[in-house]
Amino acid sequence: MRDIIKMSLILLIITSVSGMILGFTNSMTEGIILERSLEEIASSLETLITDADEFEMLDDEEIISRERIKEVYAGYENGSIVGFAVKSFGQGYGGEVEVMVGIIGDGTISGVRVMSQSETPGLGDKITEESFLENYQGKITSEDVAIDTIGGATVSSKAVNDAVEAAASLFEDILKNR
């Protein structure tokens, strides 16, 4: 019996020390990680809606409850909306493919950026290449926004197409009237 108490005590001590160390490391790194992800979003917002001088995150139920939509930002120039950036995702081969879609004016796609993906290196991850993504530029949201898939990366390119389509229909249904 005394053995068991002693052993549980030792295990308890080791686990609590490790918990304390991790809590400390976490408090050291948490801020940096958060800051970095915010920076990443800010830089893609700026390149997608170049005219805007101010951004606001839209989080009303009507928008974020839609399928495939993660986050929506509105870009303002001198107080009036000039465009939207929609973070949406599609189901790829290795998991979710997350993209940020910029939509300006009355429905022109200003660009698409891949935010995170875990597609097969050398094949599926070709979707991050500019030569593929630039084909979205200038597409109109009221028309078909899908582009040709990359050979050997059909599933991954379809995931991007799905995500962009979701963003386009969100714009047509809701954002356009704001």
Partner: peptide, 8 residues
């Protein structure tokens, strides 16, 4: 709120 303990 201690998701970082996940692995352990």
């Amino acid at each position: 709120g201690i998701e970082y303990m996940q692995t352990i």
